[in-house]
Nucleic acid binder design. Structure first.
Lengths: 237, 237
DNA sequence: AGCTCATGTGAACGGCTTTTACATGAGCCG
DNA sequence: CGGCTCATGTAAAAGCCGTTCACATGAGCT
């Protein structure tokens, strides 16, 4: 019974009653503290107050637990992005930037989920339901890109929405993964990750011909070429 | 002596003679096969034909071995990027794109190095010499960005080179990390990672006011606003 | 009340990391 | 050449982890 920690939880009998949930919660705690590599199955069991063998009644092995967390992470992620996108209100560009911020916020505030989702080294094709969850989350970015692409200024070739979505995703993931988490991979930056990503996306959108200095939402007013105003990186000296 | 594998190597006596190197090489093999998580110290020792305790004469622990690999990776990375940049020849934009391709090529061809460098979950501040190596590699991108920023079209605010460098780095890392390696994280893409990154960088540069459809290198010829020609993503339908 | 099956336990196996005391022999010094 | 010394490697052991298996428990159904 050395594993029985009685850490403040209600007394329980032979059966835990909610072990699967308790294990997922414990794993989240542990991963956010020590990274997905430092997390151990036995620790999670200890934290839930059960024997080291008990988790095997709920997860085939350690990887399946991590995959479960990743999946749950993608679901929360999708919901967060959906909310941030808010169907493009009040205008497409504003909503789009809100999605970028939400991406970073998720990476920062849920590092355990984020690393389980993107840095756990699981084969993504191993778990079809996991991949489906991941694709549903990406679909939000994809949908936003679609709407944005439709707004591309006339007289220019329309950028493929899928490509735009992949670009935005890679920017967001790149910033989040290199600079995003408070603890890991801290490099000295001249600006916050949020500012960095926002500037990056704005410059990118300008490169596609968008005029990012105003927010018409749906109206494309004048035709002045991009690049004659202050940039998105604050005041030029 | 079960650990003695005699795998084709020259016979040796009590002393290995080159164990440190052999361990690094073995670790590279193992990491590229099974990821940085799957790699074990004992396996590396076995592969080098020594007892499981021998590696401790050369590395304080498993993490120090991985850090050594990461450091060596950053050195090779720096050398590769330097070579790709080639001091901006034949022209800045061309050289810049070559750097992007070199980044992806490194991630693809040296996945073991790449994951040790960016995905091993080591605290980057733990090892000052490692961080220094990482900064020397980044300095190449930084220097390239500096040259590019100096070329920014007149009449526009100059983008800060440091910001450009961080943007380029995050794009490259994002693409490499999400889509770059053949095995891991494969998602179906409408284009190759190289094309994806090249388009992304070109659009970004256009957003900064660069005219990316020609390669003046140092001369900024005419003034036509960007965005009146075919985009960098191939033919618009 | 009795049965059954999901859920949890204990013990055990093999493997990994790391430490400690000991063995070996390469290189240096005289 | 002979002997010393110390870097390098070995053996053994402790402690942890993942995983499996036979067995225990008791919740829920009939």
């Amino acid at each position: 019974m050395s594993w029985r920690k009685d850490q403040g939880r209600a007394e329980r009998g032979y059966h835990h009653g909610n072990l699967k949930e308790a294990l997922l919660q414990a794993a989240l705690d542990l991963i956010s503290k020590k990274g997905p590599a430092g997390f151990t199955f036995a620790d999670a069991a200890r934290m839930a107050g059960v024997s080291p063998a008990a988790p095997y009644r709920h997860f085939r092995d350690r990887d399946e637990l991590i995959a479960s967390i990743a999946q749950r992470g993608f679901e929360q992620f999708e919901s967060l992005l959906t909310q941030a996108w808010d169907d493009g209100r009040p205008d497409t560009v504003t909503a789009f930037e809100r999605v970028g911020k939400a991406y970073l916020a998720f990476a920062r505030e849920e590092p355990a989920f984020y690393s389980a989702m993107f840095e756990s080294g699981l084969p993504p094709d191993a778990n079809p339901t996991l991949m489906a969850a991941s694709e549903r989350a990406f679909a939000i970015i994809r949908a936003a890109a679609e709407r944005l692409a439709a707004l591309a200024p006339p007289g220019m070739p329309r950028p493929p929405a899928m490509m735009m979505a992949l670009h935005i995703w890679s920017m967001s993931h790149g910033v989040a993964s290199l600079f995003g988490r408070g603890d890991a991979a801290r490099r000295k930056l001249p600006m916050s990750p949020e500012e960095l990503l926002e500037a990056e996306v704005l410059i990118y959108l300008r490169g596609l011909g968008f005029r990012t200095d105003q927010r018409p939402g749906t109206a494309a007013a004048d035709d002045k070429p991009a690049g004659e105003k202050a940039g998105p990186w604050g005041k030029p000296k």
